[in-house]
Design a protein around this nucleic acid. Structure first.
Lengths: 160, 160
DNA sequence: GTGTCTGCAAATCTTTTGCAACAAT
DNA sequence: ATTGTTGCAAAAGATTTGCAGACAC
């Protein structure tokens, strides 16, 4: 699927999800979902989403963006990412695969700021060990790895 | 070392660290370090630190706490922890062992909110694999595991 | 003495909320 | 018709900053 498509299947799924929860299908909600759907892997702040949505829907208010983001997050349609830079960022969920989202981690380049995603099951071993030794049952995890991406290592931009 | 001690060795190290960086040793800075030193493993917000410090030093201002926290963080004396609850939390670094701090992760109980620390080298395997396959060189990581602690599993407080 | 640090208050900045008008069902 | 949703503006709440006086060295 190419950027710019309407993603009708995704949209229909979303509309059903709203209806199932007694929520209403509004132009604003669809517009916000569309922005995020068309930029998979991009991690957008509320303000950035607001700016993108305004291009197609100039009347929208920032408060609506915040309210919709919260809704999408609760419905597990989008994932939250906090890079401790003062903004909370959001990305479209991994094609509604709940399991995939659970194993979805981030590589953050300290030089250029680019974010890469990767999946890994290695943590499951760790989680089992924790359950056995500490009696703590892990149900979710958040992993952020910081370092230098291939591009920046090549450019020798790191460690300035 | 017991809670309530002066921790003179730690304090002397800190004083030297300040001097080495051309910074001044002030009563406020020492008082804030002492609060954090006396509560290892506790994750305090700026406001909480402020309240504790005020008990011994009532004239202190909140701005000084924020400025000192930032300083301590830059000097790697304390570690930052963000639980996405609107506050940034801080804890004293793991006895100045830089390597230990690198392998210091958190278990966060979804029921009672308690935070447990654990150390693990399992991620090193993962980091090597990432370097080989993606060319991304990891230099630091942040791991948060969410779940149910032993105590709450016993109380059946989970999954209410 | 000189340059840094503190405390206060005001400013900043993201996110939330109250409310009247509006739109979806 | 009913109920949820929007947009606006104001509020909230954590963190920061400017500045004059105070303190460390």
């Amino acid at each position: 699927m190419k950027i710019g498509d309407d993603m009708p299947e995704n949209q229909d799924q979303f509309k059903n999800l709203l209806k199932q929860n007694g929520l209403k299908v509004t132009t604003q909600r669809i517009a916000i979902l569309e922005v995020l759907s068309n930029m998979p892997g991009k991690h957008l702040t509320a303000e950035e989403i607001y700016d993108y949505v305004k291009k197609k829907y100039p009347e929208i208010g920032l408060a609506t963006v915040y309210r919709t983001i919260q809704l999408l997050s609760e419905l597990n349609v989008i994932d939250k990412l906090n890079l401790d830079d003062g903004y909370v960022r959001y990305e479209i969920g991994m094609k509604n695969h709940k399991e995939a989202s659970h194993h979805h981690h981030h590589l953050i380049c300290l030089d250029c700021g680019d974010i890469y995603a990767f999946q890994d099951d290695l943590l499951e071993t760790l989680e089992e060990r924790i359950k056995d030794t500490l009696g703590f049952q892990v149900v979710d995890h958040e992993v952020k790895l910081y370092g230098h991406c291939k591009k920046c290592l090549g450019n020798s931009n790191h460690r300035i």
